[in-house]
Every structure is written in C-alpha cells, then in structure tokens.
Simulated assay, not measured.
Amino acid sequence: MRRCFQIFMLFVLAIFTSNCKDAKQEQKQPEAEATKPMEQASISKSEFGTTPEGELVEQYTLKNANGMEIDVITFGGIITNLKVPNKDGKFEDVVLGYDTLEPYLTNPTFFGALIGRYGNRIAKGKFTLNGRDYTLATNDGSNHLHGGKKGFDKVVWTAEPIENGNSVALKLTYLSKDMEEGYPGNLTSTVVYTLTPDNALEITYEATTDKPTIVNLTQHAYFNLSGDFSKTILDEDVMIAADRYVPIDETSIPFGPLAEVKGTPFDFTSPKPVGQDISAEDIQIKNGTGYDHCWVLNNQDKGFRLAATVYDKTSGRFMEVLTDEPGIQFYTGNFLDGTLPSQQGGTYAQRTGLCLETQHYPDSPNQEDYPSTVLNPGETYQSATTYKFSTK
C-alpha cells in the first residue's frame, strides 16, 4: 500500500513540475516578443562608377522602417531607383532609369536628375538682367534647356548622409562657377533628399550667389506607378490643382497670355486618365507632342500645398505632389522612342513615364508678368517639394 502511495505522489509531483515549467515559458514569451528589435531607417554607400574625367561617382541607398527605398547617385543628384509598395505590399521600382553610369553621362531625357541653374526653357538662350545681356548655351534647337549642355544633371555633387531618428537624408552640394554655361555669379546650391517614416520623399533646395543671377531648380524623375516599365502611363489618373496653364509655340516657348484649362484637354482639375485627351485635335497638344506644358498652380499665396496627384488603379499606388512653387511642368514622355535601355529589360517606349516637375514658369527671365526667378547677393533661394506615396 505504501509503495503505491509513493508512486502516486511521484506522479503528481511530475505533473506539477511540468505545469510550472510550461507556465514559466508562457510568461517569458511576451518578454521575448517585447525585446524583438524594430526595423530602423538606414543609409548606405557604394561605388557606382567613374566619370571620363576620373571623378568617382557614389550611390547612396536610403531606406525607411517600412521598407521604402531610394537610390541616389552623386552624378547629377540622380534618383536611379525608388521602390514603394503596391496595395498587396509588394515593393517595386517606380522611376525610370539605368543600371550603370554610362547612359547617364549623356542622359538626353534627364532621367531622375537635378536640374539647374534653370529648369525648363529660355528663348534663344538669351536674357537681360540689370541692363546687361547674357547669352546661354543652346541645347534645344535655338533655345536653352535645363541648364545647358552641362547643367546640374551632368556634374558630380558633394554628398553628406544625415541620420535623424526615423528619417534619413542625403545632402548634396554643388558650386556653379561664375559664367558656367553663361550664367553670372558663383552659385552655391544645396539639395536635401529626405525619406520620411510615412513613405514621403521630401526635397528641399537652397542657393546663394555673389552676383545677381537667375535660378529655377527642379527634379526630373519619370514616374510609372504600375512598377512595370513595359506599360504606358496613359491609364494612370492625374489631378493637377491648376485653373490655368502656359501655352507654348512650336519650339515650346511661352506664347500669348496664360490660358484657362476649362473646356480644353488641359483640364486636370478633377482626376482623369492621362490618355483621355492626349491625342485631341488641339494646337497646344500638337506643339507639345502631347503634354509638355507648365500648369499655373492655384493658391500661390498659400505656400506649401497640394499640387498634383497620380493614381495607378492596377497597383493601387497613389502619389501626392506638394510644393511651394508657382508652377508644375507635366510631361508625358512624348520623346521616349524605344532606343533607351530599360532596367527591367527591353527599352523605354513612348509614354512609359510621366514627370511632374515643380518650378517657376518657362522663359520667366524674358516674361515681365511671370513670377521672378532673379536671385541677388545676400538673398537665399529656397524651394520645397514632397512626393508622398500610399495605396488605395
């Protein structure tokens, strides 16, 4: 009898010990989960190539805690990749570009580049400032385009990575010397790309000069929110918060007074597919070979505000463009012709990317009624634009 009782007590003790052990493991499990490390924003550097002049070109990769990622090279401050999630959480590149440095050395399309000193066109490459005539390099027929033959898109910028809590940033600086491409004054420009925790790319611009000059900086990324560069952007819905736009002549120089968008193919005040009116019988569509015009943004007295949106219905990606600039150049990749190599294989066909370049109006130095682009010594040029991504 005693022997049976001892066996029974040993059995009870074994069960009690096992239950205690399980209870301790259950108590420890939440503690292990609580100490699981969170993903953090990061920035890293690698070599991207060397220019023909022997200058090293570096690539910086900025990544936020959500997994959104942007690659920027010091040559031209070019955004080579921008990976954002679709509605299913799949990350894909949404900007057109190249895998190697060589095609960026010519980059006739200005893929992903910083543009300066003057974004857009200046008629016949000439302007007058304080009674003095200046002649700029002409690289778009008889006109000056995007800073000239060697604008800010074709120089190596000095880079400084910045880590600030949940955000990561890259500060780029370039000194454009007096009379470079015909512009007066030594101009020091600083551009900061910041990747935020809420999947926004913030771009801030600053510049100072030692002589009166003109400045109009912008960013020339080509977006295709589908993430598939074999598809056109014609089905993507675009909204532009502008009641007027800048009409152009056959050389893309402003022509006549600012025009109302209402009742024309240029009305994007409500979202509509890019391709809805892009082939309309309209002289302005003909002059731009599609959309390649500057829209006059509303509420210019409000400062930083919503300027445009893009929505890709298939991927669910939604992009908002916010800026303090008075205008935005909407370009639909009209001159992509299937000769440039795509990162995804094949080539970039016509209208496989769209640009929304925040800026002052084209040819402003020669248009008295346009907002001024003059920068004087002692002043600081400042501008800000944000591209914010989400899904719906």
Rank of each mutant, 00 (worst) to 15 (best):
K36Q: 14
R351Y: 06
C4H: 14
N366V: 08
L306M: 12
F127L: 04
F8R: 07
A200E: 14
P52F: 15
P265M: 12
D282Y: 06
T194I: 08
Q344H: 11
G89P: 01
G378A: 08
Y134H: 09
D178A: 07
P85C: 09
E58W: 12
S142H: 04
E92R: 07
G182Q: 06
L195T: 01
K392L: 12
T218R: 09
Y361P: 00
N164E: 15
E31C: 05
G263M: 14
G125M: 06
Y381V: 04
Y311E: 06
Y118E: 02
E160V: 12
L234M: 13
Q382C: 03
I15P: 00
D249H: 02
E92D: 14
L136P: 09
A200W: 10
G185E: 00
E325M: 10
Q284Y: 04
M1N: 07
Y387A: 05
T204E: 12
K286F: 15
T209K: 07
I328H: 02
Q350P: 01
N81P: 00
V84D: 12
E180F: 01
K286N: 12
L187T: 11
G316V: 10
K171E: 02
Y193P: 00
S189W: 01
T100E: 15
C355T: 11
N81D: 13
D243R: 13
G182D: 05
N334M: 07
A159Q: 07
N120A: 04
K21M: 14
P265I: 12
T194A: 09
K149L: 11
I162M: 07
A159H: 05
T339E: 04
P108Y: 14
W295M: 08
S42W: 00
S270N: 13
G141D: 12
T209Q: 04
E180L: 01
A200P: 04
G97C: 10
P37G: 01
S315G: 03
L170S: 05
A241Y: 06
Q40N: 08
E250V: 07
G333R: 07
L114W: 03
P197R: 07
N143R: 05
D178Y: 09
R117M: 13
A41K: 04
N19W: 10
L195C: 06
G333L: 05
Y134T: 02
L336S: 13
Q343I: 12
I233P: 01
T188R: 09
M1P: 00
T61H: 01
D22Q: 15
T51F: 08
E55M: 02
Q6E: 14
T339W: 08
G148Y: 09
L101A: 05
L201M: 10
G148Q: 07
K126Q: 13
S189Y: 02
E260G: 02
Q343Y: 08
A384P: 00
V155C: 03
C294R: 00
A159C: 06
Q329D: 10
Q329W: 06
T289R: 13
D337I: 04
T208V: 15
C294I: 06
N186P: 05
I43A: 05
T173D: 03
L201A: 03
I79W: 10
G346M: 11
V94S: 03
S167G: 09
Q27R: 12
K262I: 05
